[in-house]
Structures are given as structure tokens and as C-alpha cells.
């Protein structure tokens, strides 16, 4: 039900934008032509999904059940750190940002701190070497030029 509502909102947004772009005519379809029809279809199908989900609400799994007995904090934390990583990467550069991220990730998968640090070092070292020297693709540099 929640998913159908999110999709419904997405479709509604696209619909409104498409009107702004101009739909054009059939003989000369404009930029809004495709978004308009696709979003109308999406609206219709998300409504169907909503209705069927609502009808079967007795057999519906509750939202909390989906995460029941799972270590969802791990996934959530990993996602949060990845988001932070993107934010800091252009500033800190690949070497520092990735080292920190890898230590965190290794810790998350319940490794001991020193092994995590060692693993992170090795991983970052090898990936940096592979891309910068062998493949000649420079990885992001931070404000200090590395």
C-alpha cells in the first residue's frame, strides 16, 4: 500500500511536469508527450495496486514484519555511511574517505578493529594502485590534491 502511494506520487509529479513541458499534438509530439502518457498509465496501475492491497488487507504483511528478526540496523547504517561518504568524498579525496568507509564497513560485518583497519588499508591500497597506475583512471582527489 505504501509502495503504491509512493509510485502514485511520483507519477503525479511527472504528470504535472509534463504539462509544463508541452504535450504537443499527435502530428508533432513535444517533450511532454511521453511523460504525460506514461504518468497517466502509472497513476492507473498504482491505483489498481492500492485497491488490491486494500482489499486483501487481512492477509497483508505489516511493515514491521518485513524487518522482523533481521539485523536491519546493519543495512541502515551501511546506507547512511555510504551517503556520508558521497558527501565527504569530493572534499577528503578517495584515499582518506574510502579508508574510513572501509574500516566502518568491516566493523559492521563484525570484524575486530585491527583486522578491519588492516583490511581497509589493503583494499584501498590495491584499488588505488589498480586504477591510478594500471588503468590510468584518476580516482577523486580532495582539496589537498590527493
Amino acid at each position: 500500500m505504501i509502495s503504491s502511494m509512493i509510485l502514485f506520487l511520483l507519477a503525479a509529479f511527472v504528470l504535472i511536469t509534463s504539462l509544463g513541458l508541452g504535450i504537443g499534438s499527435v502530428s508533432n509530439p513535444q517533450s511532454g508527450f511521453m511523460p504525460f502518457w506514461i504518468s497517466l498509465l502509472m497513476l492507473a496501475f498504482s491505483l489498481i495496486l492500492f485497491v488490491t492491497a486494500y482489499r486483501n488487507s487481512s492477509s497483508r504483511v505489516r511493515l514491521a514484519d518485513l524487518w522482523h528478526k533481521l539485523h536491519w540496523q546493519k543495512s541502515a547504517l551501511a546506507a547512511a555511511f555510504l551517503a556520508a561518504y558521497i558527501f565527504f568524498l569530493p572534499w577528503a579525496g578517495y584515499l582518506i574517505a574510502t579508508s574510513v568507509l572501509m574500516i566502518v564497513l568491516f566493523r559492521l560485518t563484525s570484524m575486530k578493529t585491527w583486522t578491519a583497519a588492516l583490511g581497509a588499508m589493503l583494499a584501498v591500497f590495491f584499488s588505488y594502485g589498480l586504477f591510478s597506475f594500471i588503468l590510468k583512471t584518476p580516482l577523486p582527489r580532495g582539496i589537498w590534491g590527493f
Partner: peptide, 17 residues
Amino acid sequence: LIAAIAAWMLVVIPLIS
């Protein structure tokens, strides 16, 4: 954890700057 990060940086920074 802090020590590990600090050690890592000591290795890395002079290496490339």
C-alpha cells in the same frame, strides 16, 4: 579505531602528497 585511522593516514599522506 582512532589509532588505526591515524596510523593509516601517517602512511598514506606522505606517500602521495
